[in-house]
Design a protein around this nucleic acid. Structure first.
Lengths: 203, 203
DNA sequence: GTTTACAAACCAAGCGCTTGCTTGGTATTG
DNA sequence: CAATACCAAGCAAGCGCTTGGTTTGTAAAC
């Protein structure tokens, strides 16, 4: 369940920017701004101001504004694929593997990386078609993780519906929590929410 | 299940614009453009061109561009509230009422009004705070419909999770279908999809 | 049945502002 | 002393919206 060692490994491999560095800090601020105001409403001046530089200086780090959006998405997917993989491997029974996946995705969406995950969900259309298919390829990797676990559960008779459809329904259900789930107020914890999701599927 | 008589009633009461009229046609084109390109990326020149007038002439019908977005959302909610109400009343047992709601929402999202529904989901942030709370009030009316049915099912022991949480999970799951469900290709019909959703909840 | 009156619907032109991005130059760092 | 990181200034394009004037639909007045 520990995220930090996985993050550090990815930073070392240059697959994810160091959150302490200039680039990493910009991406985190960008994710926050993109989620709060949307990509289009966020100007390069907003982005620059958030890290305390001039707007023109941004283009020393990124070629275009869209490159920033793409980087936010790519790095988020890379990190989350690694986290999901770790979650699945840590659990034994298929049922527990699914619970671990649900729990991990809820944590991605509502935890530290939540801003970036929300961007991934809601700013998809702002990416150019080329970037879209590039990001899509990365996403397929961790979709496969889900389908494998769901396929096993189906064979065991624990779920009735088509694994492919179940995954899509879960994607929507879990992503949407970002719009309403507020752990601070109201007693529902992330574990509690995970329980509710599992209970809804009679698992 | 017939939508047209309900639509016509609302048109007569001036709660929804006649789809044949100038205003209704503009709102339909606007919904399509907003869904395809997003509100911010859609210019008033795009909107005007879609109905064959000059961009300036738009402002004879609507005070601002945002007013168009708001009108799309308000009219969509009004129509769908009426459709949901009819769906619930047509069914008898609570279980069938829930199925009718799921089926009706899937139809709203993936049928004729799908473009406008997608706008409602994805362009929420483009509304000013004032307009948001205005639209929110309307939405609460038909959320109450869901909660009543889910509450009954909970009392009967048909579902275990909290009705409030179940509704939110279903909102996400059903809304999300707009991003992947394509009835034309692939054998899954709307009824089939409804079955899968119900099966996932063991209902 | 033609004329008059008037509002609604629309056009052509463009204003003022913001946008993403460029440019040429200056610090800072290893 | 080169590469990296930044600043100050501003350009060209596109944006929402306004303006002043023309066409079109409708219905009463003659």
């Amino acid at each position: 369940m520990k995220q930090t060692p996985i993050l550090h490994k990815l930073v070392r491999e240059n697959l994810v920017s160091d959150p302490e560095g200039a680039r990493g800090r910009l991406l985190r601020e960008a994710a926050r701004l993109f989620r709060d105001k949307g990509y289009e409403r966020t100007t390069v001046r907003d982005l620059a101001a958030a890290v305390g530089i001039q707007s023109g200086s941004l283009f020393h780090h990124f070629r275009t504004k869209e490159d920033i959006l793409k980087a936010v998405m790519v790095e988020t997917i890379r990190l989350n694929t690694a986290l999901m993989k770790a979650a699945v491997e840590a659990a034994d029974a298929p049922r527990e593997k699914l619970r671990a996946l649900v729990r991990a995705e809820l944590e991605s969406i509502n935890g530290q990386t939540g801003e970036a995950m929300a961007v991934l969900v809601f700013e998809w259309r702002s990416l150019s078609p080329d970037s879209q298919s590039e990001v899509l390829k990365l996403r397929d990797i961790y979709e496969a993780l889900w389908l494998e676990v769901l396929g096993t559960l189906r064979e065991q008779g624990d779920i009735q519906a088509d694994p492919f459809v179940v995954r899509r329904i879960l994607t929507g259900a879990l992503s949407w929590t970002v719009t309403w789930y507020k752990p601070e107020r109201g007693g529902l914890t992330l574990d509690g929410l995970t329980d509710q999701v599992m209970a809804m599927m009679n698992l």
